[in-house]
Write a protein that binds this DNA or RNA. Structure first.
Lengths: 340, 340
DNA sequence: CTGAAAGCGCTAACAT
DNA sequence: ATGTTAGCGCTTTCAG
């Protein structure tokens, strides 16, 4: 049992040939005689040779690593996207290094610095909640490093991205509320600096318009996406003289905070208030009543992001930023169907 | 904006000194004159020099990466543990490569192969559900590579590990049921090849004994931890002539499957059946009624695992396998307190 | 005080 | 058909 992984040198000296012969034999180079090739390959297999990625990386000046930055690591949404990235990356011989910005702008900048120091070949990023300017991507863009944003995006004219049809689904969902009998449809929104929050807000307004409503300021609450602000927003909505009969919450954290607060006040879902969540199936069906939800194709988002990334890696292409828009899906469950 | 990261060579030629001088100046080697040192350091800072980890790795024959294998990536439990590993790893200049075994023995072996090919310095692993023999760790152990198991462990006399006090908490929990008035306490168990499942099962038996009960075979169901088997087990328990008045489920998947099935049958929790879950606070308080749960110090598990790993890296120590046992915590909520 | 050279594992010209 | 050499970025003897 050798302590160190076997190298070309080991094989070469065992077989009394040169290192380059071994190297060539391993890749079936036509110059090498069949006998030598056979001997080399069989010994390599026996000794379980595998090329040293560090040496290869140094030689080719490429680490085969993608840096991934997500706002957090512990929610299904991002975990699942990361799985998708990983799968495509692995299939293409890439590793990924995962960092969490913890929703912080400062931390996001730090992550980028660290990943660049680790010599990642490029980055796949979902912006932090607190990120409001986008200059920290200058270096990456100017260096023409592969860069892909997903979900929360920016600088779309320069950077490729993967998103879902937020605006459209928000509109659809608002109309769904209306069709279900709701007439005072509230929205707990997120920071308008965040693309997804903005898109969903706009979709909401557009849906309202389609139903012949104009926006009612008092029914719209902006939050920073934290549970506490979401709870407070819900409380305010519920204490309105004319409270809403439906709430569209901008993301999962907010959705569940709203649900908890509604129940805490003893109101019934959907009888008193209809609710939809933006979350996955497991969570939507875990609670009581089961939640109508917008399901995101998380795994696919990850896959697409990785594919966009790899496409940029290839020198040939002109690096025209591409935008992939995936469809999310509204799944109707009990929480938004009022008893007739 | 240079396309390639700056190297010692770049600095050396700019300053008309040798590469080795630059290398030494950067580490404040006493041999180098203060002036040169100053010049080098200032240029390095200006040009944002950072050493090439590939070159360093090749030189020192170490990649500074830890391979991490978890049964899945998308649940809070593992994500959170990974965060803990990551934090300690990063603090110590290590990267981690994360792989998922998807609960499969075959995939686990594959992951190990791949990680070894990536030249990780060692592994931190939580065994897959389907892993029943442990010979695939021979190579790692014989090579004296750092290896740490957590949660689901094996070969404890040879390998360091991090676990929680499963046996004790299962006992405590069983007694808690009894104290709450339950007299027919069922257990939906996991594969007895899995350390956690075995420990919890034994703790359950021990708790029963403490309450003056002997085990009732009909109240114990063994599952493979999938949602479908858990649902089926619950169904069988509920259809017993004398159904249980409390269910202790071995993990979160099983807990939530059981809860759903109980509700589906129109039974009330905790009135008809008390329930505890092994899950995190977010999920325990998300559902109705809120679940009494066993909380695991997930982040700490990760941190400890990483620390154990790093300790093994240091050559000095004799590599005596250590076992860290962390305390989990029983948090009583509505689901296990029967109305009096 | 500083430079030259070797070597980590590998590949790809460039010999032979 | 095979070997030699240089070089990727860095550290570390060994020589000045």
């Amino acid at each position: 049992m050798t302590k160190h992984p076997v190298s070309l040198k080991d094989i070469a000296s065992a077989l009394q040939v040169s290192i380059s012969t071994v190297s060539r034999a391993l890749k079936n180079h036509p110059d090498i005689s069949p006998e030598v090739t056979a001997k080399v390959q069989s010994l390599a297999r026996e000794w379980n040779y595998s090329p040293n990625p560090l040496a290869m990386g140094l030689l080719r000046q490429q680490t085969k690593t993608i840096g991934v930055i997500v706002p957090d690591l512990v929610t299904y949404f991002y975990s699942s996207i990361i799985s998708g990235i990983e799968q495509v990356a692995k299939e293409n011989g890439y590793y990924i290094i995962i960092s969490s910005s913890n929703e912080s702008y400062e931390k996001e900048k730090e992550c980028i610095e660290n990943l660049l120091m680790s010599r990642v070949e490029g980055l796949i990023i979902c912006l932090a909640r607190d990120t409001v300017d986008y200059n920290h991507f200058d270096k990456i863009i100017n260096n023409e490093m592969p860069l892909v944003f997903f979900d929360r995006i920016c600088r779309t004219s320069e950077v490729s991205s993967v998103v879902t049809d937020n605006r459209e689904i928000a509109r659809e969902l608002t109309i769904h509320f209306y069709d279900g009998g709701a007439r005072r449809i509230a929205h707990i929104a997120g920071p308008q600096t965040l693309s997804i929050a903005k898109d969903r807000y706009e979709g909401y307004l557009s849906g309202l318009a389609d139903c012949g409503f104009s926006a009612d300021e008092s029914l719209i609450k902006f939050t920073n996406l934290t549970e506490s602000e979401a709870t407070e927003a819900t409380r305010q909505l519920l204490s309105l003289p004319k409270p809403p009969d439906a709430i569209f919450s901008v993301n999962d954290t907010v959705s569940f905070a709203a649900m908890k607060e509604i129940k805490r006040q003893g109101l019934r879902i959907p009888d008193d208030i209809s609710l939809v969540a933006i979350t996955d199936e497991f969570h939507a069906t875990l609670v009581d009543p089961q939640l109508t939800n917008v399901m995101h194709p998380t795994y696919e988002i990850g896959q697409e992001a990785a594919r966009l990334f790899l496409r940029q890696g290839k020198q040939g292409e002109k690096m025209v930023p591409m935008q992939v828009v995936l469809k999310s899906q509204l799944v109707v469950r009990a929480s938004s169907v009022k008893p007739t």
